[in-house]
Computed example of a mutant assay.
Amino acid sequence: MAYLNVGFTHIVDYITEGILSGRFPEEERIPSVRDMAVLMQVAPNTVVHAYEKLTARELIYTQRGIGFYISTGAKERVRSQRKALFMEETIPQVQREARLIGISADELREALEL
């Protein structure tokens, strides 16, 4: 099997976005290591590493011999973590870029209207 250039961070992002979108509801099973490896076209060890990171962040847990599940409260933890990252990293990058290319605060505000 030829593996794509997909790192464990892509798998972490796939699961966390699935948690936020509702594709992976809390207390529901997620794909096995083998199934995720096939889906993402990566080595099983890459999936193991991603699942270890998700477990350390308390977003998933394992039921030995059964599989991995989304933890209770995972959606709120992901939302909180992503919001902090957005506020601390993304917003300053956008502000810096806007200043560099001459986008006014009003133009930026208008572009960001949700």
Results as ranks from 00 to 15, higher is better:
M1D: 03
R82K: 15
S21K: 12
E113W: 00
I60L: 07
G18M: 06
D106T: 08
E58C: 03
H10A: 14
Y14A: 07
L20G: 03
S21E: 10
A84N: 14
F24C: 04
I15D: 01
I103F: 09
L85R: 15
M36G: 05
M87L: 15
A37P: 03
T55I: 04
V94R: 00
R77H: 06
R57C: 01
T46P: 02
L112H: 00
Q95A: 08
T9R: 15
R29A: 09
Q63E: 15
Q93C: 06
A84H: 13
A56N: 13
M1F: 07
R109H: 09
T62Y: 02
N5Y: 08
L108W: 03
I60G: 01
P31Q: 09
E26A: 07
G65H: 05
E76Q: 14
P44K: 08
P25M: 13
V78Q: 02
R109G: 00
I103P: 00
T90F: 13
T62H: 08
Y51I: 04
G22D: 10
V47G: 01
S32D: 06
V42P: 00
Y51Q: 05
E107Y: 00
I70K: 05
A98P: 05
L108A: 03
P44Q: 11
E27S: 11
Y61F: 15
E89M: 11
L100E: 14
R57V: 00
F24D: 01
E76Y: 06
T46L: 03
K53M: 08
G73F: 10
I60R: 02
E89C: 07
M40L: 12
H10C: 11
S80C: 04
H49P: 00
N45E: 13
M36S: 05
P25S: 12
L20R: 08
T72Q: 14
E110V: 04
P44H: 05
H49I: 09
V94C: 04
D13V: 09
L112N: 04
A43M: 04
L85E: 14
L39A: 11
R34L: 07
R64E: 10
T9G: 01
T16H: 02
Q41D: 13
K83F: 12
